[in-house]
Design a protein around this nucleic acid. Structure first.
Lengths: 201, 201
DNA sequence: ACGCAATATTGCAGTCACTGCATTCTTTGC
DNA sequence: GCAAAGAATGCAGTGACTGCAATATTGCGT
């Protein structure tokens, strides 16, 4: 992996990873709030100032994987057949990420526990997901085409609902101690949304 | 209003309002980031330290109304007939808030424009809405009763979807320059979610 | 191998949100 | 009026984050 990258690029990735792992270790040892960026820098063997060359905020270290997740979703979404409904395409794409999550379980739990115990990390996570929503609704809007010329509200609603399903599934998965498989939970959330919420009593 | 309140309580409310209005004025004049809490305190005629007795963070001043909104939703939700479906109850309750919004238009736009241009305010707003989701899903879970003994995932999904509808409607309302009435937009979002997203092409 | 240009790292000094604590004022119930 | 409760203030600090200038590292042409 990264074989064709120059030394510069490779070092950058290594450092980023070093910072991330140093930070997560410290967060678990002493808590997110009680860990300073200086301590992280010290453990990662970089100058304090350098930390901010790699991450814009302390919060973002915990959520370092978000960018790739979105890439993965968008990529998958692009490769879905054109005649598939947007909703099914979204379901399929999010399922890919859900199974990634399932396989990275332990690393994920680590991040989640920091996220849920720390308001500012949680807030940042939601903001990043709002970014996902923008991106996904743009992709979906294009997919739907000009037939639905509603200013994109339908596309946004689809994206928004899909991510709501994802969050609900994950939340339940985490608090219930991962008894059920995440992809199954997600599928069931998508089904409930698709088959009408109005029937629930 | 507040006629039967003691002097203490009345002063507290007045001060809070004074801080809020001072802050919003300054945010509009100089931008959120370039306004310091000291400047807000100065204009509101209080000591810098006192600001934090009224608001936990600078962000929260912009979102001061959120607590009452949630109260209103919960109150309304409590007064919906017991035989109404949870989804319809949610729709009715959120419509109440939507029409509040519609009437407070100009004050709202003010807040929204600060919110959307400032990541940290936006993030905080989402975090507060996540709190709404918790509260609403608890209320809905109780409403559904033990028939659905799924650990509350259905309740959460309902709340989550309803708030997603609300956000989509508001977002569209704001970016489209409030051409359509917010309650109408919200109704249409609720309808689309209820009648199946799977049919959208 | 060498030097030059591009880029990355570092250090320094500063700003500002936010906190704990001790002190002083204001309100309230008696 | 007065004592107790509560609110406001001042002070001194912490720590995230920034701009800027200095220094080190890397990549490339020769």
């Amino acid at each position: 992996m990264n074989a064709e990258l120059g030394l510069r690029e490779r070092k950058k990735l290594e450092r980023r990873a070093a910072i991330e792992s140093a930070a997560l270790d410290l967060f678990e040892e002493h808590g997110f709030d009680s860990t300073t960026t200086e301590q992280i820098a010290a453990r990662a063997d970089i100058a304090p100032r350098t930390f901010f060359l790699y991450f814009p905020t302390k919060e973002d270290v915990v959520l370092a994987d978000y960018a790739q997740r979105l890439d993965r979703i968008v990529e998958e979404l692009g490769s879905r057949p054109a005649d598939e409904s947007p909703w099914d395409a979204l379901r399929a794409s999010l399922l890919v990420v859900a199974s990634d999550y399932e396989h990275e379980r332990s690393a994920l739990i680590r991040r989640f526990s920091i996220m849920t115990t720390n308001p500012s990390v949680f807030a940042r996570s939601l903001a990043l997901q709002a970014g996902w929503e923008d991106t996904l609704s743009a992709v979906i809007a294009e997919r739907i085409g000009s037939g639905h010329d509603d200013g994109g509200i339908t596309a946004r609603l689809l994206a928004s609902a899909a991510l709501a399903a994802m969050r609900s599934a994950i939340q339940h998965w985490v608090i219930s101690g991962h008894h059920e498989a995440l992809p199954d939970l997600l599928t069931s959330c998508f089904d409930q949304l698709a088959h009408g919420l109005a029937e629930v009593r």
